[in-house]
Design a protein around this nucleic acid. Sequence first.
DNA 1: GCCTTGACGCGGC
DNA 2: CGCCGCGCCAAGG
Length: 107
Amino acid sequence: MDDELHERIRAVISDVPAGTVSTYGDIAALSGAPSPRMVGRVLAEDGHDLPWQRILRANGTPAPHLAHEQLARLRAEGVLADGQRVNLREYRWRPEGLEDKEPEGLF
DNA sequence: GCCTTGACGCGGC
DNA sequence: CGCCGCGCCAAGG
């Protein structure tokens, strides 16, 4: 796998501010990953030192096996979940300068 | 080089 | 809500 891309994915994730969340799809788009799966792969292998709790699935639900821990961490930084689901429209992170990273309107 | 596995996504029913 | 299928792509067997 391309180390360059690997680092870019990590960089984008670490840019997500506390109190906000993002999705695998967004991270993939912003980092240039070919597929959202790559984001999950990077987190699974090399995400221990990243704010992984801020990355949710497209529908606002967290990763199944870590759901409990993830939601607890988010709650601790002010992100409240409605059961298993976080309201993305309220907490989703909006990148600062997305003109230079993003192809076009993704929102 | 084929097959299986995932921290995934999306449209259909 | 839930279940299903299909697309996606790198890693490991």
